[in-house]
């Protein structure tokens, strides 16, 4: 039975897929095909054709761009770069002015701050805190949405 099986393996030609595996993926599990390949001229011919064609593919001339791609691309990204820097400068200046303004206010009113909250009623304090935190939350949301919008435009452009 085994001998019959072996004979059948040796006389059946390899399929195209088996030939490719034999030629391009030498490894385990190819032994039955190796026996057949050693004796079958037809399969040897097909394998030689595959091997030679793909060797030629490997040796084909590689394409190149006949321009200096790097300098052309760099010249196009310069304006975008400066625009990003400009927006960062604006954000930086705004933050710096806000912090400076807060510091000045704090400096001018520091002697009154200690008594400010003790003089206010609880309701007034809650109202101030609520209004302040709401404004802050809306400001953060708006800034985040603006940032997301910019990122989306950059990705899609």
């Amino acid at each position: 039975m085994d001998l019959q099986h072996e004979n059948r393996m040796n006389t059946t030609h390899l399929t195209d897929q088996q030939l490719q595996l034999f030629v391009f993926q030498q490894g385990h599990g190819l032994e039955p095909w190796t026996t057949h390949m050693a004796t079958c001229k037809d399969c040897q011919l097909k394998a030689t054709l595959y091997r030679s064609v793909l060797e030629e593919v490997a040796n084909l001339e590689k394409p190149v761009f006949n321009v200096d791609l790097a300098s052309q691309v760099i010249s196009q990204i310069e304006p975008a770069k400066s625009r990003i820097d400009f927006s960062r400068v604006i954000v930086g200046v705004t933050l710096f002015s806000m912090l400076s303004w807060l510091c000045i206010i704090f400096h001018w009113t520091s002697h009154e701050l200690a008594t400010l909250f003790t003089r206010l009623s609880a309701m007034a304090t809650y109202l101030i805190l609520l209004t302040g935190s709401s404004l802050l939350i809306f400001l953060v949301i708006s800034l985040y949405q603006e940032f997301q919008g910019k990122m989306k435009r950059l990705t899609l452009s």
Binding site: K62, V64, L69, A70, S71, V73, I74, I77
Partner: peptide, 17 residues
């Protein structure tokens, strides 16, 4: 930008292919 230029030079072969 020189680093980006380096990236372009290193990969333009594959991109061209």
């Amino acid at each position: 930008q020189r680093a980006f230029s380096q990236i372009i030079k290193a990969t333009e072969g594959l991109v061209a292919q």
